[in-house]
Design a protein around this nucleic acid. Structure first.
Length: 499
RNA sequence: GACUCCGUAGCUCAGUUGGUUAGAGCAUCUGACUUUUAAUCAGAGGGUCGUGGGUUCAAGUCCCACCGGGGUCACCA
């Protein structure tokens, strides 16, 4: 016979923790310390169990021995019914209180919501139709010393949800589903690229020069070398160097980039991108690849290329329309900037459209400003915006016969830039000229000048094959494919201020 | 960084033009009941109303500052 220490008549969170602690001590004394358990032989996940016995009729029982394990999400009728949650589903566990030994009854009374248990028993379906494990044995595999959030209402407070993501995941099936979808999407992108003979590589996160994108970097310091290091803003330059060296003609990297800029529902200081490079190809190859990657991801998550987002149905069926930036502006405003190649005229046209442009803006920046103000938001269905201004594309080849326009596209979905690709500039003389022009550009008062990456220029001088590059923002794609409202939903631990 | 909205029990939420001792459901504890489906029934405990100031006879409520969060904008290859 087990002796129980009577839990104190308690209240409040601190008392609740103390009560759980007391139950742990009683449990440890009577049944052993749950934290010494190292393994549990699980025969079925909740989902596998339900699948295997899908045709078992209500009221029928089997003598099939099974074992399940997971977190207790509900305790009904004094422990007669437990709901156990694992990473697939919930399954109900039954204890026949009338015929339970005093010892087992005592054990049952030591359980709390949130405890991790392993249970063995036989399978039946209750008269009400719920698949149930009739428990013959059970053990606590881990004691929850804090109560879980409401298992009915879930956890809604966004602050707590992201600070205590483990509680969010337990309490909110939607959160589990969203994050799983994100990671499945990444696995699908990887598989698609591997099946096309791209080699996954890694390049440094710590850069001595933060190049490859015009973004404000995070700065850190290396003690032994006594020098500043920058968290990378893009992997682009190192990836090209791998292709220059012939490591592989087709490479990709799926990894984090860091930008020390504002936060928003679509910006997190660290974010994940996939960057892809292919030698002997140009941006046109990447148009197709972008469509394939997104289409395959949508199919993997939804089984269809038509995906609901924020009430719209986004259709990812290839091919997607390809329209030049100036063409789109003409469609949406009536102004043809392609016919106004002079920067002054372009700024005048922008002003008459009510778009504020700085007098220092060249033709390209002016066109971009008009595009951002008048067109971007309306590009809901996938569209490739081609012929982007060269002045915005310092690493891209221009067209020989159209020097203001780069061999580049950005793919827009739901008004967001999702992909960016170009024919990579491989002329070291031209690249140096562009870097130096950039380094001399007037920037904001707090902005450091753009450093010139000499290592990269040397690599170009060594000879870079013609090459196409593509970058896709993983987080934004994940938002779209999971119908999420914020980037924070698709990042397991989004950046927050400390409490 | 600017503007704006929000912060009440472990969770989800009420709380009127400022007015007794701040409420409910779930969770917790006690008892009853026992094949439940948010089990039910009876009872109990649980609050620095984000923090600190101020106005007032009186502040969860009004004002100010700060902390944290959401949104919009700015920034953003």
């Amino acid at each position: 016979m087990v002796t129980l220490s009577v839990p104190p008549a308690s209240s409040g969170l601190e008392d609740e923790k103390a009560r759980r602690q007391a139950r742990l001590e009683t449990l440890t004394a009577a049944f052993g310390d749950p934290f010494l358990v190292t393994r549990f032989a699980k025969t079925h996940s909740a989902a596998a169990l339900k699948a295997q016995f899908v045709s078992l009729a209500a009221g029928d029982r089997t003598d099939t021995p099974v074992s399940v394990a997971g977190r207790i999400m509900a305790l009904r009728n004094g422990g007669m019914f437990l709901d156990v949650l694992d990473d697939t589903d919930r399954v109900q566990v039954f204890h026949d209180l009338k015929n339970l030994s005093p010892e087992r009854k005592a054990w049952l009374e030591l359980l709390d919501l949130g405890d991790i248990v392993g249970v063995a028993g036989t399978v039946r379906r209750t008269p009400r139709g719920e698949l149930t494990v009739d428990a013959t044995e059970g053990q606590v595999l881990s004691k929850a010393l804090e109560p879980p959030p409401s298992t009915f209402h879930g956890l809604k407070d966004t602050d707590t949800r992201f600070r205590r993501r483990e509680q969010d995941l337990v309490a909110n099936p939607r959160s589990r589903q969203t994050l799983r979808a994100r990671f499945t999407m990444i696995a699908t992108l990887r598989r698609t690229l591997e099946s096309r003979d791209f080699l996954e590589v890694e390049t440094p996160m710590l850069h001595t020069v933060a190049g490859g994108a015009l973004a404000r970097p995070f700065v850190t310091h290396h003690n032994a070398l006594d020098m500043p290091l920058y968290l990378r803003v893009a992997p682009e330059l190192h990836l090209k160097r791998l292709v220059i060296g012939g490591l592989a003609e087709k490479v990709f990297e799926i990894n984090r980039c860091f930008r020390n800029e504002g936060l928003s529902p679509r910006h997190n200081p660290e974010f994940t991108s996939v960057e892809i490079y292919q030698a002997y190809a140009d941006f046109r190859t990447m148009l197709d690849l972008t469509e394939t990657l997104v289409y395959e991801a949508a199919m993997a998550l939804h089984g269809t290329p038509r995906v609901t987002f924020d009430g719209d149905v986004l259709d990812f069926t290839p091919p997607w329309p390809r329209k030049s930036m100036t063409e789109l502006i003409r469609e949406h405003t009536g102004f043809d900037f392609a016919a106004l190649p002079d920067a002054d005229e372009a700024r005048g046209a922008a002003a008459s459209l009510g778009v504020h442009v700085d007098p220092s803006f060249d033709w390209g920046r002016t066109v971009e400003a008009v595009f951002a103000a008048k067109v971007e938001d309306r590009l809901i269905q996938p569209v490739h915006v081609v012929d982007l201004p060269k002045s915005l594309s310092p690493l891209a080849k221009a067209w020989p016969d159209r020097p203001e326009v780069a061999q580049r596209f950005e793919t827009y979905i739901n008004g967001w830039e999702i992909a960016n690709a170009y024919s990579e500039l491989n002329d070291p003389r031209e690249q140096r000229a562009r870097f130096e022009a950039q380094a001399n550009e007037r920037r904001g008062p707090d902005e450091p000048p753009h450093p010139v990456d000499e290592s990269f220029l040397s690599a170009l001088a060594f000879g870079m094959p013609p090459m196409a590059g593509l970058g896709i923002g993983i987080d934004r794609l994940a938002i779209l494919l999971t119908d999420s409202t914020s980037i924070r939903e698709v990042i397991a631990f989004p950046t927050l201020r400390p409490e």
